[in-house]
């Protein structure tokens, strides 16, 4: 089953875009200096974004 709830902690995000770049399913996008998750239904929960976010700014939740 695909799809996940992606929690962005805006206070922590510094807009480095590592998560956007390393997401294999193109779930994430930059909104100028902040990451957004416009396509959470495509998430395969590989956790790359959460693991690679240096700023503790993104969490992948089950639903």
């Amino acid at each position: 089953m695909s799809g996940a709830r992606l929690e962005i902690i805006e206070r922590n995000c510094k807009g480095c875009s590592i998560c956007v770049e390393f997401c294999p399913k193109d779930v994430l996008e930059m909104d100028v200096f902040l990451v957004t998750a416009p396509r959470p239904e495509d998430c395969i929960k590989c956790m790359q974004c959460e693991l690679l976010c240096p700023d503790f700014a993104i969490k992948v939740h089950d639903e």
Binding site: R11, K14, C16, C53, P54, D55, F56
Partner: peptide
């Protein structure tokens, strides 16, 4: 699913001082 880092981090200390994209945060999570 989402990893619970919060219990290991001192309250109120984030965001950290490191620059956007600095890998130190990735290491700290590890």
């Amino acid at each position: 699913m989402a990893y619970d880092y919060d219990k290991s981090i001192r309250p109120g200390k984030l965001p950290h001082i490191w620059c956007p994209g600095c890998g130190h945060g990735i290491v700290m999570k590890g």
